[in-house]
């Protein structure tokens, strides 16, 4: 009886604490909603070309640590064609991406059975801006703004035609994530979102996820839009 009462008391305290934390986080949001953000949104059209090394794997996941240049993705205003041909304006210093799949699937997973997430990002732009993820920090007691990468690897679209070089087997990748700016450039102190629309390249076509997670090296190439206010 005493044990039951103690359990009930502990559960009650835990629930109160959780509600308190949630309310505090919400209070911060509600305060921010009562006035407009004064900053006008800054938008960018960019492109990355990254080389990656496998950094870990498990039965249903594999992660890669990527780095490489970021350049301007230009647009032809007559027909909207988007090309990754501009000058280098930054560098992905570190980006760890994690692919999680349904391990029970035979062959490569369906589009809806892949989750592409991000566990760390540092993107430095030439103007001194530094972009990192906008995620809740589990080490702090109050929840922060949490906009994790919600991405997918789209195996069902099939390999992209015309692959060559060390990573000829390329598959589409897509998704959006929250980012925050720091440093000394135009994006310092701003928050917003980054949306990718590109591809992952592998040394050969994998038969299944077990083979895919065995690849030591990959590449990631993508245009992306960046909007922060």
């Amino acid at each position: 009886m005493k044990r039951l009462a103690l359990t009930a008391l502990l559960l009650g305290l835990t629930a109160s604490a959780s509600a308190g934390f949630l309310e505090s986080a919400l209070d911060i949001l509600l305060r921010s909603l009562r006035s407009f953000s004064g900053a006008e949104a800054l938008k960018y059209s960019l492109h990355y070309d990254l080389q990656g090394q496998r950094s870990g794997s498990g039965e249903d996941w594999v992660s890669w640590r990527l780095e490489g240049p970021v350049r301007v993705a230009t647009v032809d205003t007559s027909d909207a064609q988007w090309r990754g041909e501009g000058p280098v304006v930054g560098q992905v210093v570190e980006w760890e991406l994690r692919l999680r799949v349904d391990p029970t699937v035979a062959g490569l997973p369906r589009n809806t059975q892949t989750e592409l997430g991000s566990t760390s990002l540092r993107l430095e732009l030439a103007d001194g801006s530094v972009l990192t993820e906008l995620l809740d920090d589990p080490a702090t007691p109050l929840p922060e703004t949490d906009i994790p990468l919600q991405g997918r690897l789209l195996f069902e679209l099939g390999p992209i035609p015309g692959g060559s070089g060390p990573y000829p087997a390329r598959y589409r990748a897509t998704g959006c994530m929250g980012v925050q700016g720091s440093g000394s450039g135009a994006l310092a102190g701003r928050r917003g979102a980054l949306c990718i629309s590109g591809a992952f390249g592998f040394p050969r076509r994998p038969a299944d996820f077990a083979e895919l997670r065995s690849f030591e090296q990959v590449e990631a190439v993508s245009g992306f839009t960046l909007v922060l206010h």
Binding site: S45, H47, A73, V75, D79, A80, Q81, W82, R83, G84, E85, I160, P161, G162, G163, S164, R170, R172, S197, G198, A199, G201, V221, S222, G223, F224, T225
Partner: peptide, 13 residues
Amino acid sequence: SSPPGGEGLRSLL
């Protein structure tokens, strides 16, 4: 001068 996602793709913004 390839599309932002690489060769074999067509991209518009």
